[in-house]
Write a protein that binds this DNA or RNA. Structure first.
Lengths: 266, 266
DNA sequence: CGTAGTATTGACACTCGTCAATTGGGGTGG
DNA sequence: CCACCCCAATTGACGAGTGTCAATACTACG
């Protein structure tokens, strides 16, 4: 009765070794948040090396944190070692708070830079700094929309559809922040991470990617994804052009690269 | 390649007949929000008959809506007719807005009563009515926490674990609003609805329930769930007592039956 | 040139979906 | 009051989708 369980499922595939960097770092390290060298000068900026945690579960994240550069991902661990990746973060995305009490980790996928926009209690934020509050709400709303979409995917779509759905989403998001080129976009993830994000096994992720490649839809290698047939891909994902994702786009409107820039520090 | 698809999957099982009330009502009706008879006197209260929609996708829900009595559920439709139930709502829960742009339906599971606490633009709400704004944020945060938990369930738990997880959650939520008795709680859903909520087929929901019954964990009949071994059930769900759900409980703290009562109309 | 992690692949097992038939209430009209 | 109907619940048989195990390439790095 262990469809997705296998004891040393993924993220802990070779229990004794030093694999699955992010997942392990989530528990084994002593120093909590992965801040090593702080910003050379600016105290509101922190540099986080890849594969270390930016936000640790249970730690009450204080203030508004955003990802300024690099890639990260939100994840949650189940008691038995299974891991689920909630979503990936690109520059401009909100790191914390997702919600005052949604407990999960956020880990750096690449070396990245995090900025703190406000500290301490946020309840008075709307009055003190309304543009920041508005940006915060946009960020949380966008996150919730993606979360909802992901729930539907996991509940009612098969492997290929889920993969297509994720790739379309990431293409659009990378386009929004201007790091996507014409036919491709950067996506620095391993198949293991993809598996944890899509609720699949590593092997099946591989099979699914191969299938999409053979269909001529996408190619994925060296941390980049080449999209050859966006039409077919969106169709597979169940998105009919003017569908959900465009709402997502519209919702994130007014944000060219970062909605946070004007809302800097107080 | 159609694991969860079968064309006339669920919620449309007999395409020609009048089955699947909620799902169909989501599309086929002309009059939008299912408000029939309004509140006998109070214009902020609306009575909604079972199996009609409270909130229709795309309709920009204006203001803050909460469920005052009865059961409802949030759902989303995929283009091909598949349906996914995002979550169930009990009295006291936030109906709208979940997020300014998360598009989905909310349908009444039983006859129920909905109250509007504020209308129009909510951006100034924090300043105008801070207790209501606080309640709204609690409501949205709780929703997000459950959404996140559900994502993990769908991605990384098998049928039995998902079912256990849902039942534990519903037990705790019904306890909070005081409609649960000692060993049982009301849960007016069909197995079809359960299937759509858990990302399973109707048949497999039936099998899963039978298995749980044979294990002596729960009994489900006549719209009620009898929990015989909450320990084992939580264990199955991957909750170790002081785990996530208790955080959920703590998060909803300060709410006995409804956090909205004091934040009534302006 | 080892060593380790990642990607691939094949073989096989198990979970879960699909199809189809049956049962058992709960209405409802005669 | 009974016959009928509709629908939820159940069950069995079978197949598709996905997970698991294990072995083999690839690549990068020291």
């Amino acid at each position: 009765m262990a469809q997705a369980r296998g004891e040393q499922f993924h993220s802990c595939r070779t229990p004794g070794s030093k694999s699955a960097p992010a997942a392990r770092s989530g528990r084994a390290r002593g120093p909590r948040a992965g801040g090593n060298g702080r910003g050379p000068e600016d105290p509101t900026v922190r540099h986080v090396p890849r594969f270390t945690d930016i936000v640790v579960e249970g730690e009450r994240s204080d203030g508004v944190l955003t990802l300024e550069a690099g890639w990260a991902f939100r994840y949650r661990l189940l008691g038995d070692g299974r891991r689920h990746i909630i979503d990936f973060l690109v520059p401009g995305d909100l790191v914390a708070p997702l919600s005052p009490m949604a407990s999960h980790f956020v880990a750096a996928l690449t070396d990245c830079t995090v900025r703190r926009h406000a500290s301490g209690d946020l309840s008075a934020l709307a009055i003190i700094d309304s543009p920041l509050a508005a940006a915060l709400q946009r960020g949380m709303a966008g996150e919730m929309t993606r979360l909802l979409e992901k729930t539907v995917s996991l509940g009612r779509r098969n492997a290929k559809e889920r993969m297509a759905s994720l790739l379309v989403e990431m293409l659009q998001r990378t386009q929004q922040v201007g790091v996507a080129s014409d036919g491709w976009f950067p996506f620095p993830v391993t198949q293991e991470l993809l598996a944890d994000a899509l609720g699949l096994s590593i092997v099946h992720v591989n099979r699914t990617l191969r299938s999409l490649r053979e269909d001529g839809l996408v190619d994925m290698a060296a941390g980049r994804v080449a999209v050859h047939d966006i039409e077919a891909l969106m169709d597979l994902a169940g998105l009919t052009g003017a569908d959900t994702l465009s709402e997502l786009t519209a919702a994130a409107d007014g944000r060219d690269v970062s909605p946070w820039q004007d809302a800097g520090r107080p």
